[in-house]
C-alpha cells in the first residue's frame, strides 16, 4: 500500500503547493521586468507581510520540496530510459522529465543558497535580494546557467502537470491527453518567457546596490 500513497503524494505535491509556488514566484519576479525595482520590492514585501510566513514557507515550500526532490531522485534512478529504440514523443518527455527533475533539484539548492539561505544567516536582507539577483544575472555564464535551471524547472512543472492529470485519472482518453499536452506545453512556453524576461529585468542598473552587497553576492558566488 505504501508505494501507491507515496507516489500519489509525490505527484500531488509537485502541483500543489510546489507548482503554485513556482507560479507565484514567477509573478513576483516578473514584477522586476514590469515594474522595475519598485515593482519587485513591492512583491517581496507583500509576500513577507503574509501572516505566519514561517509556517507557510515550512509547509508549502520546504517540506514539500524536500519530499518531492528526494523521492523524485529515486524515481529518476528507477527508470531504464530507452529512447534509442522507442523514439516517441511521450517517451522522450518521460526521459526529459527525469533529467529536468535532477537539474531542477541542483538548481534549486544553488539558488536557495544564494538567496534565502543568505537571508537566514543574516548576510543580506530582503531589500537586497534584487541586488543579489542583479549580480548573478549580470554575469553571462551565471545568466546562462540560470536560464538552464529556469527552463528545467518550468518544463518539469508543465510536463509534470500533464502526468499529474493522467495519474489522477483526470485525462483518460487519448484525445484528452493530447489536448492537455498542448495546454501544458503552452504553459511551459509562457512560463519560460516570463521567467527569462524577469531575469533580464534584474539586469537593469537600478537593481545595482551599494558595493557592499555586490561584494556579498560575489563571495556567495565564488
Amino acid at each position: 500500500m505504501k508505494g501507491y500513497y507515496s507516489r500519489k503524494l509525490h505527484s500531488l505535491l509537485g502541483v500543489i503547493p510546489l507548482g503554485g509556488f513556482l507560479i507565484s514566484h514567477m509573478i513576483s519576479n516578473y514584477k522586476a521586468f514590469e515594474g522595475g525595482k519598485e515593482g519587485f520590492m513591492g512583491a517581496v514585501h507583500f509576500l513577507n507581510s503574509m501572516p505566519l510566513v514561517f509556517f507557510l514557507e515550512l509547509f508549502l515550500i520546504w517540506l514539500p520540496l524536500l519530499y518531492h526532490g528526494v523521492y523524485g531522485l529515486y524515481i529518476a534512478y528507477q527508470a531504464n530510459n530507452n529512447v534509442g529504440n522507442f523514439n516517441y514523443e511521450r517517451n522522450i518527455r518521460f526521459m526529459i522529465q527525469r533529467i529536468t527533475g535532477v537539474i531542477t533539484f541542483v538548481f534549486v539548492i544553488w539558488h536557495m543558497y544564494d538567496t534565502r539561505f543568505q537571508i537566514m544567516i543574516g548576510k543580506i536582507t530582503h531589500d537586497e535580494l534584487g541586488a543579489v539577483m542583479h549580480g548573478i544575472v549580470s554575469n553571462p555564464v551565471l545568466f546562462a546557467l540560470y536560464v538552464v535551471g529556469v527552463l528545467s524547472a518550468t518544463f518539469h512543472f508543465a510536463n509534470g502537470l500533464w502526468a499529474f492529470l493522467v495519474s489522477w485519472g483526470i485525462t483518460v482518453g487519448p484525445r484528452a491527453q493530447r489536448i492537455s499536452t498542448y495546454i501544458c506545453m503552452g504553459l511551459f512556453v509562457v512560463m519560460s518567457v516570463m521567467f527569462i524576461l524577469a531575469m533580464t529585468g534584474f539586469r537593469d542598473a537600478e537593481f545595482q546596490a551599494a558595493n557592499a552587497v555586490i561584494d556579498i553576492a560575489k563571495t556567495v558566488l565564488s
Binding site: M1, G3, Y4, I75, F94, V166
Partner: peptide, 19 residues
Amino acid sequence: LMQDGGIEGCGNSQNCVRA
C-alpha cells in the same frame, strides 16, 4: 493495483500502447 509494484509504477512513457 494499489499494492507495491502496482499501478503507481507507471511513469507515463506510453511506449506500451505503441508497442
